[in-house]
Design a protein around this nucleic acid. Structure first.
Length: 258
DNA sequence: ATGGTCGGCAACCGA
């Protein structure tokens, strides 16, 4: 079983990366964020053509989440279970032995912005959502762009970035409180080394070569699922294309068949 | 030093 997550930053302008990557890597599940398209205009035929089921929930121009899967999910729900639901930021897809939750966590803009307070509240509401809707004694994968780099090792300059909304103590604490329900960040099991990043800002010149990145895209697993993990890694391909994405793909492999 | 570049969409907002 292979599961992956990718902030596409517009699905329509990233199809040239997503479709060939799916054909080459054949993950069972690909979670996508920032599809930036309303449901009427989602390019679902491109996924069907290569044998993938696709579920999505988006808005015109911003946010938007989608899950592509080889098997059809038995149940799909959009949004949190409290208001505002933000159906364009969360999808839960249930398969026979696996629940996948795909989130695009609010970015937060600036520390003194209402958007940052909203981000912290959103993570607190997500914790309650997991408590009510998901049994972490089973196989659960929580994937997405969390807009949080959890530890010093996950950013290139922890001192300078301590007041950034994706690295501030309050954001990290809110994220850790969700994880504390029983999620394991399996990436660090396989890659304890520094300079492992999933996002490189377009505005930073030669960010990849200079290793000026962030690890904000994550695959977290419930303990039973984490116990069956085999590997987890970052695929830099989307960042190295000639029309690159700002995010990379994170991939996790497990020893069971979906 | 307070930028820089994308994507959406058609003037600026979001990241």
């Amino acid at each position: 079983m292979k599961i992956a997550t990718f902030n596409v930053n517009s699905i329509r302008s990233r199809l040239h990366i997503v479709i060939p990557w799916l054909k080459a890597n054949k993950p069972d599940i690909l979670c996508m964020q920032e599809t930036k398209v309303d449901d009427r205009n989602f390019p679902e035929a491109d996924f069907h053509r290569i044998g993938y089921h696709i579920v999505f929930s988006g808005m015109k121009g911003r946010n938007g989440v989608a899950i592509a899967s080889l098997k059809e999910p038995e149940r799909v729900e959009f949004g949190l279970d409290s208001e505002p639901q933000d159906r364009d930021r969360l999808i839960r897809a249930e398969f026979s032995d696996l629940i996948v939750v795909n989130t695009y966590v609010p970015q937060g803009f600036k520390l003194d912005s209402p958007k940052y307070a909203y981000k912290l509240e959103w993570l607190a509401r997500l914790k309650e959502y997991f408590k009510r809707k998901v049994d972490l004694n089973g196989y659960v994968a929580w994937c997405g762009d969390m807009n949080v780099a959890p530890h010093d090792i996950d950013v290139h300059n922890p001192k300078r970035l301590r007041n950034h909304v994706c690295f501030h103590e309050d954001a990290k604490r809110a994220f850790e409180e969700v994880k504390a329900l029983g999620f394991i960040d399996i990436f660090r099991k396989y890659h304890p080394e520094p300079e492992q990043y999933t996002f490189f800002d377009y505005r930073v010149k030669d960010a990849v070569q200079r290793k000026l990145g962030w690890r904000v895209d994550h695959i977290l697993a419930s303990k039973p699922l984490a116990d069956r993990s085999k590997d987890c890694y970052i695929d830099m391909k989307p960042r190295l294309e000639n029309k690159p994405s700002d995010h990379t793909i994170v991939v996790a492999e497990f020893d069971f068949v979906l």
